[in-house]
Each structure stands twice: as structure tokens, then as C-alpha cells.
Amino acid sequence: MVFEIAEVRKLARLARLSLNDEEVKHMQHHLGEITKYVDSLQKVDIEGVEPMTHAVPLDLSLRADEQMPSVGRQGLIGSAGYEDGLIKVPKIIE
């Protein structure tokens, strides 16, 4: 598969990654190479095969609804290192 520059930029936008022109060119080349290789999967006969989403069959297990010790609000915010017990972000609405 050959990637157009515009496609790489679109993917980067979707993935929230800023890339400079040189990076875009590198990625264009490498993504092309990798998808060319991955395209070999198109030849595998998968007729009637169920997709495997996990290595072991998983049940949705629920724990007892009891209060457990946790790191708490301060522990989590403290690790982000922001002030006044709040995580500040740039303006969202103009």
C-alpha cells in the first residue's frame, strides 16, 4: 500500500501527533513498507473463523461492592503535579 502525504497527516491528526515534514516523509515510507508486509494476511483463508479477541476466555467478573483502600484524589492529582488540588488544562470553549 502506498501512502499519500495527506493520508499520513490525516492519521497523525487522528492520533493527536504533531509531525514535522521530515517525520511525515519517513512515516510515509515506513507505513508503506509495513502495510505491504502486513497485506500478506489477505491471502490467509479465514472463511468461517471466529475472531479471537483475547488469549483466554474472560468472564465479566464483578467484585463485592465494598469500600477498598485506594490512592485517593490527592494521590492521583499529586502525581500529575498541578496546583490547588486541580488539574488545569487550556481553554476548551472559545
Binding site: L11, A12, A15, L17, S18, E23, H26, M27, L31, T35
Partner: peptide
């Protein structure tokens, strides 16, 4: 903030895999 943080602080292999 998202694009600059991620674009500059992830290395090339990580960015390659995120894009793929």
C-alpha cells in the same frame, strides 16, 4: 497541547506504531 506533547515526547518507533 495534545499534539505537541505527544508529537515531541514520543519517540519515532512509538509514533510509527500509533500511526499504524
Amino acid at each position: 497541547m495534545y499534539e505537541e506533547t505527544r508529537g515531541q515526547l514520543f519517540g519515532p518507533e512509538v509514533k510509527r506504531r500509533i500511526l499504524l
